[in-house]
Computed example of a mutant assay.
Amino acid sequence: MSTISLRVSEEELKLFQDFAKLNQISLSELIRRTMLSKLEDEYDLQVFSAHEAAKARGKVESYSHEEAWAELGL
């Protein structure tokens, strides 16, 4: 497993430690979860933006749920 060093102020460290303690997780776990969540949010936003751009260019086809069910024979 790799290690990452992070420089923060004493005030930020206290805030992070208090939040980790409140959630009964280690500081390392708090930072790992927070970073992964941020990355997931950014990825979702990029995918959504690409979809909306394709939709604006008329490159996306939409179907109602009734049409999808009929297509699937349900």
Score class of each variant (00 low, 15 high):
residue 21 K to C: 03
residue 3 T to V: 08
residue 8 V to I: 06
residue 41 D to Y: 08
residue 28 S to T: 03
residue 28 S to V: 01
residue 1 M to H: 06
residue 35 M to Q: 10
residue 25 I to F: 01
residue 53 A to E: 15
residue 67 E to F: 06
residue 39 L to K: 09
residue 68 A to I: 11
residue 62 S to C: 09
residue 55 K to T: 05
residue 14 K to E: 09
residue 44 D to E: 14
residue 43 Y to D: 14
residue 24 Q to D: 09
residue 46 Q to F: 03
residue 1 M to K: 04
residue 50 A to V: 07
residue 15 L to Q: 00
residue 66 E to H: 11
residue 25 I to M: 07
residue 57 R to K: 10
residue 19 F to G: 04
residue 12 E to I: 02
residue 61 E to S: 11
residue 1 M to W: 01
residue 37 S to R: 11
residue 10 E to Y: 03
residue 43 Y to I: 09
residue 25 I to T: 06
residue 19 F to P: 00
residue 40 E to R: 10
residue 53 A to Y: 10
residue 8 V to S: 08
residue 5 S to F: 00
residue 45 L to T: 07
residue 20 A to P: 00
residue 27 L to C: 00
residue 8 V to D: 05
residue 35 M to S: 13
residue 55 K to H: 10
residue 43 Y to A: 12
residue 20 A to L: 01
residue 54 A to H: 11
residue 24 Q to Y: 00
residue 40 E to A: 08
residue 30 L to F: 03
residue 47 V to S: 08
residue 63 Y to K: 13
residue 15 L to E: 00
residue 45 L to F: 04
residue 33 R to L: 07
residue 19 F to E: 03
residue 56 A to S: 13
residue 65 H to C: 10
residue 64 S to A: 12
residue 33 R to K: 14
residue 26 S to C: 02
residue 57 R to D: 13
residue 53 A to T: 10
residue 39 L to N: 12
residue 36 L to H: 07
residue 16 F to Y: 02
residue 11 E to K: 04
residue 39 L to S: 09
residue 35 M to K: 10
residue 60 V to R: 15
residue 19 F to D: 03
residue 22 L to Y: 02
residue 49 S to H: 09
residue 26 S to F: 02
residue 14 K to C: 01
residue 5 S to L: 06
residue 6 L to D: 07
residue 58 G to F: 08
residue 38 K to S: 13
residue 64 S to I: 14
residue 21 K to A: 03
residue 8 V to M: 05
residue 50 A to Q: 14
residue 49 S to Q: 13
residue 67 E to Q: 13
residue 63 Y to V: 07
residue 49 S to T: 07
residue 50 A to R: 14
residue 69 W to D: 15
residue 20 A to C: 01
residue 33 R to S: 06
residue 61 E to P: 08
residue 69 W to L: 15
residue 3 T to C: 06
residue 47 V to A: 11
residue 62 S to E: 13
residue 40 E to N: 11
residue 39 L to I: 09
residue 35 M to T: 15
residue 66 E to I: 10
residue 50 A to S: 15
residue 5 S to G: 08
residue 48 F to H: 13
residue 41 D to E: 15
residue 15 L to R: 02
residue 10 E to V: 03
residue 46 Q to S: 08
residue 31 I to R: 04
residue 30 L to Q: 04
residue 9 S to K: 07
residue 7 R to C: 09
residue 39 L to H: 08
residue 60 V to D: 15
residue 72 L to R: 15
residue 25 I to S: 05
residue 16 F to S: 04
residue 17 Q to Y: 01
residue 57 R to C: 09
